[in-house]
Simulated scan of single mutants.
Amino acid sequence: MLKQNNFYAVKAFSVMEAVFSMVITAIVIGVVYVIFSILSERMNDFKEQNRYVADMNRLSYAITKDIFDSEQMFEMDTNIVFESYSGAVVRYEYGELFTVRVQDDFTDTFAIAMKSLKMDTIANKHKRLFLKRLKFQFDVNGKLLDMNFFKRIYPNQLLKAEP
């Protein structure tokens, strides 16, 4: 403490200096808050978009594996059924918002709407190679996406299918 004119003076900030530093601190905090909320919103958008990609990858992998492992595949109502060589059955149920894969006691849900399914048999121009084609149309984040899956049909399977 210093003694000046019979008063003791304490070295400190003036009221104006304190107010000025509080205003600058408030501006900095406001800018940081705005930047943080923008980044947080962008990260949520990225997370939502990534969820669609992850679901699409999982669904594509599951369908490809089930087609490869299946001996037969057929459509029933809003289901597509795969029967494997071992007798195991995998069923895909599709609705307006979700596609559900059911195998024994395991159920997997994909947040992807299947809009249409078409199953047909195609052949090459020499009629030596036959394929069963599954043509899916998915609604992914408001966009229609077509996906085709193929399974080779061998001659013995064609003979079984003949009446």
Results as ranks from 00 to 15, higher is better:
D105H: 03
E75Q: 15
D77S: 08
R51C: 02
D104Q: 04
A62T: 14
R51F: 06
G95E: 05
F46C: 10
V34Q: 07
M56N: 08
Y33V: 12
E75D: 13
L39I: 04
V53D: 07
L117Y: 06
V81D: 09
R42W: 00
K47M: 11
F74H: 11
M16L: 13
V53L: 12
T99N: 02
K118D: 08
T78L: 03
D108A: 10
M76H: 09
F74P: 08
D120P: 03
M73V: 07
N44I: 07
E83A: 07
E83T: 13
I38G: 00
V19I: 15
N5Y: 11
V32Y: 08
F46K: 08
F110M: 03
Q49C: 01
R51P: 06
A18W: 05
E83I: 11
L117N: 05
V23Y: 02
T78N: 15
L117Q: 04
E17P: 02
F46P: 00
K11Y: 07
V10F: 10
K11R: 08
V34R: 03
F68T: 10
M73W: 02
I29Y: 01
A18M: 12
D66C: 06
K118F: 13
I24M: 11
M73E: 06
I63L: 09
D105E: 08
F106A: 06
E17D: 01
A18N: 02
N44T: 06
Y33A: 14
M73D: 02
M114V: 12
E41I: 00
D66K: 03
M22D: 01
N57F: 10
S84Q: 13
V34P: 00
D77F: 03
G95H: 03
E75L: 07
A9L: 12
V90I: 09
V19L: 15
F46A: 15
I67E: 02
V89Y: 07
S37N: 10
F46L: 15
F82H: 10
